[in-house]
């Protein structure tokens, strides 16, 4: 297995507060890695660093052998790293197709963008089908439900065909059916790509995760299969010590 993403000795400091503290993470090509941890563990911050939104105080981030630190966000995207956001962020004043079409054309030179869109490209059409938004294609994204916006965002990633996808809590706030649907979508996406998913919904995890990394207070607590992680005492302490309702989900299975 070749390493696709490698994070070493990462330090992120916000006004003296260490959001990420000496973190190491290695993700191999083709892997689907789940990233869990209590709120404030630094999961989103880690994604922010990899995608160029936040600059770290120290450490290295390498993607396919190339350092990502110091690159502007759009260049990192062009290298093949895509992300979604914790709160679905699509362009509400554009239609579903227009959102996907913009995402699909990001490698076009500005000159080519000055033409009108003629119809719907095959890639956009395929993404519409994959994320189940065929019927909403010509509607403004603002009228979509929360779950549909998340799917649209995943669709926008798909048409960009990144090597590495970083998904920040893709099922948060979704209904049960929507979660199942999203899980299936993830499976489909992961067949040909490397995916890092931040998610702490245990049921979702048990159904879809193989390898899990647990973060706590800015560092990696442990790594392993779902069963291994759930059996780990430190993980139980972190979760159980904090909230009682997590216990039931953590103990089952």
């Amino acid at each position: 297995m070749t390493t696709l993403l490698e994070v070493r000795d990462l330090e992120v400091v916000f006004d003296g507060f260490r959001a990420i503290d000496n973190l190491d993470l290695t993700v191999a090509e083709g892997e689907v890695r789940f990233l869990i941890g209590p709120n404030g563990a630094g999961k989103t911050t880690l994604i922010d660093v990899v995608t160029g939104l936040t600059s770290p105080a120290g450490g290295t981030v390498t993607f396919a052998g190339q350092s990502l630190l110091g690159l502007p966000e759009h260049k990192i995207v062009r290298l093949g790293v895509g992300r979604t956001f914790q709160t679905a962020s699509v362009f509400e004043q554009l239609t579903v197709v227009e959102n996907l079409d913009l995402a699909a054309n990001f490698r076009q030179p500005l000159r080519a963008l000055l033409r009108r869109r003629k119809g719907v490209s095959d890639a956009v059409d395929a993404a519409l089908t994959t994320v189940g938004l065929v019927d909403q294609a010509d509607r403004l994204a603002e009228v979509l439900s929360h779950g549909q916006k998340q799917w649209l965002e995943i669709g926008m990633l798909l048409v960009q065909d990144p090597h590495l996808l970083l998904l920040d809590e893709p099922v948060a706030g979704m209904s049960k059916e929507e979660r199942t649907r999203t899980g299936e979508l993830l499976h489909e996406i992961a067949r040909t790509r490397t995916v890092v998913v931040v998610e702490h919904d245990m049921e979702f995890l048990r159904r879809f995760a193989n390898c899990v990394t647990v973060m706590h207070e800015g560092s990696v607590l442990c790594e392993g299969t779902v069963a291994e992680v759930q059996a780990d005492e430190r993980v139980q302490e972190v979760y159980l010590g904090r909230s009682r309702d997590k216990r039931s989900t953590a103990e089952v299975g």
Binding site: T51, G52, Q93
Partner: peptide
């Protein structure tokens, strides 16, 4: 509507 979001589309 979302300048920062556009960066993550690669523009």
């Amino acid at each position: 509507d979302g300048e920062d979001r556009v960066r993550f589309l690669g523009y």
